[in-house]
């Protein structure tokens, strides 16, 4: 089974906001980074994967199983980390462990205490006294102590200092050495992904723009820079969005070959960062 998560045509409508026809596959053994602006639908998609909300239409499958019939089996195999603390604030880590551990068949106290030591977490202090980074580490320690195959994280790096962000990436990378683990995490800090992501899923205004390997992204998307007089209705079709300035234009293409054919050596073609891609898509999709 290649895909650990499979969303088919998932639609969920709220007042004034919706996610539409999301088709998303998360591949086993790889890290998928989930990017998108704030409010693009990242959390809603993650909540759908966790069965925290049920879609109005479409199919959600994890490990090839359906939540309707295999909810517990599925959740036994997931470790979750959310943006912000979801554990009872007044309790200390030891008590939280006492509440969470019995829920998992494969909970391993040895691993848990190993992480507690590695992360230098106090066991007897109330969670509410923890810093943001410590709360994240505590969630992570719990998420990693029951041999989860899929780690789902919603904005795990938001609000963390750069040093801890790097430590987290190191840790995730270590987890990936075991080829059975899959990581899916959302972020709007795209530099987190440059290092560890294998696949990038990009959501924009409730719609999935793409879900590609980092190689495909690099081979399809590029920044094109050139003189304004090169632009006309036809040549502009090669671009997702064009930014014009008096000194020239800068545009994002999703088809490097086509751009090369049209413009040849008259323009500069550069690698587009994930941030570039997000920025230009925000300007709206120009061509049909």
């Amino acid at each position: 089974m290649e895909n650990v998560v499979e969303l088919k045509n998932v639609t969920k409508r709220f007042k004034g906001f919706s996610v539409n026809h999301i088709n998303l596959q998360v591949k086993r053994g790889f890290v998928t980074g989930f990017i998108g602006a704030n409010g693009a639908g990242k959390s809603t998609t993650i909540k759908t994967m966790m069965n925290l909300l049920r879609p109005d239409a479409g199919e959600v499958k994890l490990f090839g199983l359906d939540y309707k019939t295999h909810e517990k089996e599925i959740k036994q195999r997931i470790g979750f980390v959310y943006d912000g603390n979801i554990f009872f604030e007044g309790l200390n880590l030891k008590d939280i462990k006492r509440i969470v551990a019995p829920a998992y068949k494969r909970w391993d106290d040895t691993i848990f205490y190993q992480y507690v030591e590695q992360f230098e977490l106090p066991l007897n202090k109330a969670i509410k006294t923890f810093s943001k980074g410590m709360q994240m580490k505590a969630s992570l320690a719990i998420a990693l102590s029951h041999q989860a195959e899929l780690i789902i994280m919603d904005e795990p790096t938001a609000g963390l200092d750069p040093i801890f962000r790097r430590e987290l990436l190191d840790l995730l990378q270590e987890l990936m050495v075991d080829g059975n683990r899959t990581i899916f995490f959302s972020t709007h800090i795209t530099t987190d992904l440059d290092r560890i992501a294998d696949y990038i899923a990009f959501i924009q205004k409730g719609e999935l723009v793409f879900n590609q390997s980092i190689h495909d992204v690099a081979e399809n998307y590029a920044l094109v820079k050139g003189e304004l007089n090169l632009l006309d209705r036809d040549t502009e079709k090669a671009f997702v969005h064009v930014h014009r300035a008096s000194t020239g234009f800068e545009a994002l293409t999703d088809n490097i070959k086509a751009a090369k054919n049209i413009f040849g050596d008259t323009v500069i073609i550069e690698r587009a960062s994930l941030e570039d891609i997000m920025y230009y898509f925000k300007g709206g999709i120009h061509h049909a």
Partner: peptide, 18 residues
């Protein structure tokens, strides 16, 4: 292994895989 190499080079697995 490609996974260990990815970890040591601090790059994604899919890169070493390729």
């Amino acid at each position: 292994s490609m996974r260990n190499l990815a970890k040591d080079l601090q790059i994604s697995v899919i890169t070493t895989k390729r």
